[in-house]
């Protein structure tokens, strides 16, 4: 009897193991399926493009074939210039992003928490916001030259606003009812901030980070177009001046890839830290 039971138990265990495995396989299958579905359109487009280029429908001095563009990228990778371009551009975005984020966190928290700080800073920040950020470029170049500082500052300015706005609205939007819970447990202002207001405004902060990063990539192009000797934006200028559309398109594609990659990292952070949210799952 006892033996039978243990046998039965082992059967149960193995069947459960099989079930888990099949669930995992199903998940993988689903992931694969969504990747395949997502790649249908790009593959069709690229194939059509390649064919039309081959038969000469697109003149190669205007729109070279995908393979030519791919060869350009591979060529740059082989002679080593590619990594320099990618490295310096990423560095600029990263530095500007960090600086802009720090400024936005400091000012955004002040304005969100203190009425007086809001009255003091917010009108001016809003006024600055209505200036198109690219309009600062000539001034920054005049002040800081065409070296790194002006570019990084430029990107930081672009990154600042979405993050700032999201932090302020996140803090102001924290549910009063949750704050009352904290007060009921006698939390001090600092504890309230740390234990309730920060976690509650985190979703909005992360949204700000992502849109800030997007703007960072936008501004790095502007900054590098203005004057640079290296970087993906510089490749755009080179391509234009030397009539090499393949260089321009290669640069655009590289921008898309690293931009998407950096956003993917932030998105991972977001899903990690916001797993508690009650969201619609499609």
């Amino acid at each position: 009897m006892a033996k039978n039971q243990s046998e039965l138990a082992s059967v149960l265990v193995t069947s459960r193991g099989v079930k888990q495995k099949s669930v995992r396989v199903k998940k993988q299958y689903k992931g694969l399926q969504s990747i395949m579905l997502g790649s249908i359109l790009p593959i069709v487009l690229i194939t059509v493009w390649e064919l039309l280029s081959r038969i000469g429908f697109f003149p190669s001095y205007q729109l070279p074939a995908p393979t030519v563009i791919f060869q350009t990228i591979v060529g740059m990778a082989q002679d080593g210039t590619l990594w320099g371009h990618i490295g310096i551009t990423t560095y600029r975005v990263f530095a500007g992003f960090v600086l802009g984020t720090i400024a936005a966190v400091i000012l955004g928290s002040l304005v969100g928490f203190y009425k007086k700080a809001e009255q003091l800073f917010d009108p001016m920040i809003q006024a600055f916001r209505s200036i198109p950020s690219l309009a600062w470029v000539p001034l920054f170049i005049l002040w800081m030259g065409i070296g790194e500082p002006s570019k990084v500052t430029m990107i930081a300015v672009g990154v600042f606003f979405p993050i700032y706005l999201n932090i302020v609205s996140g803090i102001l939007g924290v549910d009063r009812k949750l704050i009352e819970v904290g007060k009921m447990y006698g939390l001090s202002t600092f504890q309230l901030v740390r234990r309730i207001i920060l976690p509650a405004s985190l979703p909005s902060f992360l949204v700000g980070l992502r849109s800030g990063l997007g703007l960072g990539w936008m501004f790095v192009v502007a900054a590098e177009l203005m004057g640079a000797s290296q970087g993906l934006g510089f490749l755009l200028v080179v391509g234009q001046n030397m009539s090499q559309p393949e260089t321009i398109i290669a640069s655009i594609i590289l921008f898309a890839i690293i931009g998407k990659l950096s956003d993917w990292v932030l998105k991972k952070v977001e899903t990690r830290s916001l797993h508690w949210q009650d969201r619609l799952v499609k």
Binding site: E180, V181, M184, I196, P199, W276, D278
Partner: peptide, 14 residues
């Protein structure tokens, strides 16, 4: 003093 509110008011991230 302890307070039980009309709604649970749990902190969703904990």
């Amino acid at each position: 003093t302890g307070f039980i509110f009309q709604e649970p008011r749990l902190l969703p991230w904990l």
